[in-house]
Amino acid sequence: MNTAKREVSSELQAEILSILKSRFEKNMNRHKDVEWADVQAKLEANSEKLWSLNEMEITGGEPDVVSIAIGNDKKTDEYIFYDCSAESPKGRRSICYDHQALEARKEHKPENSAVEMAADMGITILTEEQYRELQQIGNFDTKTSSWIITPEPIRKLGGALFCDRRYNTVFLYHNGAESYYAARGFRGCLRV
Rank of each mutant, 00 (worst) to 15 (best):
A4M: 13
A4C: 04
R6T: 13
E7S: 14
S10N: 13
L12E: 14
Q13R: 05
Q13S: 15
A14I: 11
L20E: 11
K32M: 02
V34C: 13
V34A: 05
W36D: 03
D38E: 11
E44Q: 15
A45L: 11
N46F: 10
S47K: 10
S47C: 02
K49W: 11
L50M: 13
D64G: 13
I70D: 04
N72R: 07
N72Q: 09
E78N: 12
Y79T: 01
F81K: 09
D83W: 03
D83C: 09
R92I: 04
R93L: 08
R93N: 03
I95H: 02
I95R: 01
C96W: 03
Y97E: 09
H99A: 10
H99G: 09
A104M: 00
R105C: 08
H108I: 04
E111P: 01
N112I: 07
V115G: 08
M117C: 12
D120A: 00
I123G: 10
E128W: 06
Y131V: 00
Y131Q: 02
R132H: 00
E133G: 06
L134V: 12
Q135W: 04
I137T: 12
I137C: 02
G138I: 04
N139W: 10
D141W: 06
T142C: 01
T144V: 08
S146Y: 03
S146C: 03
W147F: 08
I149K: 07
T150G: 01
I154E: 07
I154M: 12
R155Q: 00
G159H: 05
C163E: 08
D164I: 04
D164W: 04
R165P: 09
R166Y: 14
T169I: 14
F171W: 06
L172H: 08
N175A: 15
E178R: 13
Y181S: 10
A182V: 06
F186S: 08
F186T: 00
R187Q: 02
R187P: 01
G188C: 04
V192Y: 13
V192D: 10
